[in-house]
Design a protein around this nucleic acid. Structure first.
Length: 290
DNA sequence: AGCATTACCCGCACGC
DNA sequence: TGCGTGCGGGTAATGC
């Protein structure tokens, strides 16, 4: 269920407590149960289990949509993909009897204090890595959208570098890290840009407006603890404030025109045909004759 | 050749 | 029951 704001919400809960759970920091790993082998991307199960044993959690962080759990010697990386979630909870109830795993718990980390971190993932798309150097897994990710060091000028240069449709480009994690289907549609609507606009046609003003829109929707998503949609409820409330996503046929909040929906880049895409007109390539230009 | 787009795949649950 | 859909992303094929 994660895009950047949902992952950030989970990370903050593991850092400071929240979402009904205490902090993760400081607990010491005892071991792990691999209930679905393919949820572990690397290394092999035996090496994985041996290396996490008695490792303390020193810090929790996020990069793009990845959750980073820094241990003493290595880093656990978790990607929730479409349906993953994490639960930190006691492994036993008040009477001391073990609490059975939930349906779809794929990996369960056990701590020496009797607590456990369950990686729950109905669709089995999520993955867990253990890496000496997290950069080896994260390599290829584009810039963090909320990082101030990404300037409007640099963003414009990056957009100009490709001739790609905005929607698939913003979904490409090597272009910018953390956006998914919801926040991309929301940002394009807020910026007034058609999802099919070729990226190199954006003016520097367009680019600045788009970067601001991306930051605005991500920050609002974080402020509302993410969005909770489909059957997986996580406590966020951003779904009650969507401008375009999931609102096909309903009035655009800006102009009242019905929101359109079409498939772009294999993903359902929602936009206002009036507020987000398609920018066209300048007429004239190349002649094909020799 | 090289980039951009499209097709397909991967489990599962839910609504119609 | 059957079918369409989905907060993601990798690989392969096709197109320009």
């Amino acid at each position: 269920m994660p895009e950047l704001p949902e992952v950030e919400t989970i990370v903050r809960a593991l850092q400071n407590g929240g979402r009904g759970s205490p902090p993760l920091i400081g607990r010491v790993l005892q071991g792990a149960e691999l209930r679905w082998q393919r949820s572990l991307a690397a290394p092999q199960p035996d090496a994985f289990l041996e290396k996490i044993r008695l490792q303390p959690v020193k810090a929790v962080a996020r990069r793009g949509k990845f959750i980073l759990i820094h241990l003493n010697q290595a880093t656990l990386l978790i990607h929730l993909r479409m349906s993953g979630d994490l639960r930190l909870e006691p492994a036993t109830d008040e009477t001391g009897s073990p609490v059975p795993p939930a349906a779809h718990d794929r990996v369960i980390f056990h701590f020496t204090d009797g607590w456990r971190l369950a990686f729950n993932d109905p669709r089995k798309f999520g993955r867990v890595w253990l890496a000496d150097d997290p950069q080896a897994v994260l390599n290829g990710l584009g810039p963090e959208p909320l990082d101030e060091s990404l300037t409007a000028e640099e963003f414009h240069r990056r957009l100009s570098r490709f001739q790609r449709q905005l929607k698939p480009l913003l979904l490409d994690q090597s272009f910018i890290a953390g956006l998914g289907n919801i926040y991309t549609d929301e940002a394009l609507h807020l910026a007034g840009l058609h999802p099919l606009t070729p990226s190199h046609l954006l003016s520097s003003e367009d680019a600045a407006r788009l970067l601001n829109a991306i930051r605005t929707v991500l920050q609002e998503g974080i402020r509302r603890n993410g969005a909770s949609i489909d059957w997986v409820y996580r406590g966020g409330s951003f779904q009650n404030h969507f401008r375009a996503y999931g609102r096909s046929g309903q009035p655009c909040p800006e102009c009242g025109t019905p929101i359109a929906r079409r498939i772009i880049g294999q993903r359902s895409t929602h936009f206002c045909p009036a507020c987000q007109p398609l920018k066209v390539a300048p007429a004239g230009g190349n002649s094909s004759t020799s």
